[in-house]
Design a binder for these strands. Structure first.
Lengths: 194, 194
DNA sequence: GGCAACAAATAATCTAGATTAAGAAATAAA
DNA sequence: TTTATTTCTTAATCTAGATTATTTGTTGCC
């Protein structure tokens, strides 16, 4: 199994000796998911955070009219979870699914808490990861309030060039908060212009 | 000066002995702000997190068309900062302002880092605070994508009953993502119905 | 008290994006 | 390779909420 990616991810923020990194790795549970497989169904309690090593996952919610809303994409080198459920132990509001055949490393909340106690540096690591997620999440709120759909799409392309090509358009449309029909219309309008 | 509130806030997540809490308090810088005073101007680097002990602050951004968007309210017992700027050291995108005459306790990022080293429990404390903020922030994204303005307003009233009465309507309108004009129209429509 | 500045209400008009409905392309599956 | 399923496109119509403009309350403040 390939733990290289996650160790490099961790080492961006904290430094581990080999005993610590061995211990960390011993807590991880590798898992494969085929295309379209669910890693989490809404209503289940989410007990793990997943670090993506290959492929791409995505998280989405379903509203009371049946509309699906993509909340986050997780390509390789990203973490994904229903944090609300992980923290509170209550049923998840999110579905997490594999966009393509993917591989992840699961870290259960229980093991994560052990890790915080045995190697307190990880408290710092996760604080930093979450700080960055919060900044991104707030920026997305600002963008949704102040940019047009077209501007949000351009932003998306700039920020996630890889995803732009590899995920279905309807998921991008959903992520930026518009319908697939309008997305299509918008794109043809954009290409006509230049 | 009144440190009771912040100590109770901290003790929700970690336990301090009296030496630790004295040290923590020694890092805090009390500050008063009169109504409408800015604690942070967009473009400045945000070097502190503020814990509100009295009154209420709010954070907002200004888009390229001059539109203001309220990002967060911080009544007593809440933290507020432009986290992006605090973390990156880059110019803030947010303005932070006093809604009413207010009192805050400032914790500089430098002092916070000292604190993390001397009392590592605080790493945990801030991780938890930020985890909760992230959950709230993600829920707000979901709500903006899947609820109508009226539903978002009802939600707002349920979640922040105190604020509903005490902050200007245009700020609530901005927070839930609509214009003050539409907010007014919506409210009269709502009261007509029941 | 009276004037200035701001906050809220009302109404007419406009628009970004939703909805509905078909068909065309592309993928998957058999 | 044919069929089935899903994704994407196009187009007509519709609507939640924006914009603009005017009026009426409020809350300062000298």
């Amino acid at each position: 199994m390939d733990f290289d990616l996650i160790l490099r991810n961790v080492s961006k923020h904290i430094t581990l000796n080999s005993r610590e990194s061995d211990y960390f790795i011993s807590l991880l549970e590798p898992k494969k998911a085929v295309r379209n497989e669910f890693l989490l169904h809404e209503g289940e309690v989410c007990r793990h955070s997943a670090f993506v090593t290959h492929g791409c996952l995505y998280g989405y919610t379903v509203d009371h009219k049946g509309g699906e809303h993509v909340i986050s994409f997780a390509p390789a080198d990203w973490w994904i979870a229903d944090l609300y459920s992980v923290i509170s132990g209550k049923p998840a509001r999110m579905n997490i699914r594999a966009q393509q055949d993917s591989e992840v490393l699961l870290l259960s909340r229980t093991k994560q808490e052990e890790l915080h106690i045995r190697v307190p540096k990880f408290e710092r690591f996760f604080r930093i990861i979450i700080e960055n997620s919060l900044v991104a999440s707030q920026q997305r709120i600002i963008d949704n309030l102040s940019l047009t759909a077209e501007e949000r799409f351009r932003d998306f392309c700039r920020r996630y060039p890889t995803l732009t090509a590899s995920v279905p358009q309807k998921h991008i449309a959903s992520y930026i908060g518009i319908t697939p029909e309008f997305f299509s219309k918008m794109r043809s309008r954009m290409s006509r212009k230049r």
